[in-house]
């Protein structure tokens, strides 16, 4: 077998790569209550009475500068968000830069400045790093690892029947922003990536309703909301029911998705969080989210139900019902 692009595109092919290659090869996989086998957003390290969360993310986005952000902002946000959705306050970041021979110094400076600004927003210090220059035509890859500390670790698998599902804003913005530049498509209004660090928003909710009342959390990145909700339904062994018309959608994303025939549910986000909270705290959680600038469009999109365990049910805009499946891989437009 050869590794193909689809093995990195989220979806079933990537699941196969991870389980057949990575999980079967590594044997030492646990340092705390969350191990590699859990395939959560990060792993945990037992340290005395406490547990630390540790995570890493490689960033290879093309183009490196895109509407609403750049690879630097993405690299800090991605890792901060993986910590944050486990309920962990980011303590420090490590970064590795792999740079192509001949890469423009000005561009590198811009990327580093963007990383610096984003780290201030969190705030989280970048305390160590590594730099390599290579001949391969890669442009630049930015890899970041992060460590954080959680009062209470929040897992993908903690959702309970009856939980209410919140989302902090419009879906698909990152994916469509990237696609629009890559394909040279102009949309009627500007389409910006949502790339942002989410720790302060998540903290706002956690402190407002109590961390124990957030039962499960995930950032719907590659594979979009479809992938995230399916993962959470499967790992938590609950059914997930959502109302399509409650899911926030920026009009530009809507237009792009209609035009290209790609579902916004399958498109990547870099500044969104899905939260399963106790139903009695749902309204309070929503208010807390909306107080934050990154949550002003927050909405209750669904709930965890008894029926169809492990699956996601959508009530469509006109009231029909179907399953929401994981995306098949990189979305491609339909012909005709």
């Amino acid at each position: 077998m050869r590794i193909k692009m689809m093995h990195g595109a989220g979806g079933e092919a990537m699941d196969e790569l991870i389980s057949e290659f990575i999980l079967k090869t590594f044997k030492l996989k646990s340092a705390g209550s969350v191990s590699l086998d859990d395939l959560d957003d990060g792993g945990s390290i037992k340290y005395g009475e406490e547990e630390l969360i540790f995570t890493i993310d490689g960033h290879t986005v093309k183009p490196i500068f895109f509407p609403g952000g750049d690879i630097g902002r993405l690299a800090i946000s991605g890792t901060v968000n993986d910590l944050a959705v486990m309920g962990a306050e980011p303590l420090a970041i490590a970064t590795s830069l792999i740079i192509q021979d001949g890469f423009a110094g000005d561009d590198l400076k811009r990327i580093l400045q963007s990383m610096d600004e984003t780290s201030h927003e969190v705030p989280v210090p970048i305390i160590t790093g590594d730099t390599k220059v290579v001949e391969e035509k890669i442009g630049i890859f930015v890899i970041t690892a992060g460590i954080g500390k959680a009062k209470r670790i929040i897992r993908d698998s903690g959702a309970k029947i009856g939980d209410v599902i919140l989302l902090n804003g419009g879906i698909g913005e990152h994916g469509f922003a990237i696609l629009s530049v890559r394909e040279g498509i102009e949309f009627q209004s500007s389409l910006n990536s949502d790339v942002s660090p989410l720790w302060s928003l998540i903290k706002e909710v956690g402190e407002a309703i109590g961390w124990e009342n957030i039962h499960a959390m995930k950032d719907p990145t590659r594979g979009g909301l479809s992938e995230a909700l399916n993962e959470m339904a499967r790992k938590s062994e609950v059914g997930v029911e959502i109302w399509e018309s409650n899911v926030p959608l920026n009009p530009a994303v809507k237009a792009a998705s209609e035009m290209l025939g790609i579902s916004p549910f399958d498109m990547a986000n870099e500044g969104k969080v899905v939260m399963f909270v106790s139903s009695e705290y749902a309204e309070e959680a929503l208010k807390a989210m909306r107080r934050h600038p990154l949550g002003k469009d927050a909405a209750i999109i669904g709930r965890a139900v008894e029926q169809y365990k492990g699956k996601v049910i959508v009530n469509t805009e006109i009231g029909g019902r179907r399953f929401l499946e994981k995306p098949l891989g990189d979305p491609v437009p339909r012909v005709c």
Partner: peptide
């Protein structure tokens, strides 16, 4: 696509 995406058969 419309029929299946909007769950029209289920209605």
């Amino acid at each position: 696509d419309t029929i299946t995406r909007y769950g029209i058969r289920s209605l």
